[in-house]
Simulated scan of single mutants.
Amino acid sequence: MKTIKSILVLATLLFAMQVNAQTDKETTIKIINNQNYVFNASSALPMSSYEVSKVLSRMPGGGGGGTIQLSGSQYQLIVTKDSVESYLPYYGRAYTATIGVNPDESGIKFKSKKFTYKADKKKKGSWLITMNFKDTKDVQSMTLNVSENGYATLNVNSNNRQPITFNGYMSEPKEKKQK
């Protein structure tokens, strides 16, 4: 009986996620072709290790590792033709200490103007986007897998940290208000 309830709850959640898709197929194609979009992170999946699992098990709702929900947050990756801005958290193991860094500046936060960008269209309408950075301190590359309805997975590889993965959705950038 417990299994049936679990399956029903999972099916309901998946259906709700599909109904609430953030972009339609045409919008996803347009924003990727224009290289002007926002990746909105909804969950983080740190690389599993003993240390990370130990810390996560002490967090409210933590089960000793796995997925960290980022709901209610404004964690984003903003991509335009001439820049990439990252405002993402980091959970995982760092191989070098960042002494004297303001805790508000920790995470995966940077602005890059020197980067390579490659977007490949895959089967069934999905996209594989690869970005390599030349002017960031820590982040080497990011790979974004985007479905045709706007759901995406972002993989971040750093020089001094374990890799981390984010799940989320794509959206058009909001217009900046002119005063």
Rank of each mutant, 00 (worst) to 15 (best):
N40F: 02
T96R: 15
D82E: 15
L56K: 06
S48I: 03
G62A: 09
V52M: 12
Y95I: 02
K54S: 11
L45D: 05
G62F: 07
A97H: 12
G92Y: 09
G72Y: 04
Y50V: 12
Y50N: 13
R93L: 08
S83L: 09
A44P: 00
R58M: 07
T80R: 15
Y91R: 04
L77S: 02
Y91T: 08
Q69D: 14
Y90G: 00
P89W: 04
G107V: 02
A94L: 01
F39E: 01
L88Y: 11
D104W: 13
R93I: 04
T96F: 11
G72V: 02
P89N: 04
L45T: 04
I78R: 13
S53I: 03
S49G: 12
G72Q: 02
L45M: 13
S57R: 14
T98L: 13
N36S: 15
L70W: 05
Q35F: 10
E85I: 14
Q74K: 06
K81L: 02
K109W: 03
P89M: 04
A44N: 07
T80F: 13
T98Q: 12
L77C: 08
Q35K: 15
K81G: 03
Q35E: 11
V84S: 03
G64K: 14
G63D: 07
V84G: 06
N102Y: 07
Y87G: 06
S83I: 12
Y50Q: 09
M59R: 12
Q69R: 10
V55C: 01
S86V: 13
Q76W: 00
R58D: 01
L88R: 03
I108S: 02
M47N: 09
Y87C: 08
M59K: 11
E51R: 14
N40V: 09
I78F: 08
L56M: 15
G62E: 05
T98I: 09
Y95K: 14
Y91E: 00
L77T: 04
T98S: 10
Q69F: 15
A44G: 09
Q74T: 03
D104Q: 11
T98V: 08
V84M: 06
E85W: 08
G107F: 00
G63A: 11
N40L: 05
R93K: 15
L56F: 03
P89Q: 01
G61T: 10
S73F: 07
G66R: 14
L70N: 02
G92Q: 05
T96L: 10
G100M: 06
I108L: 15
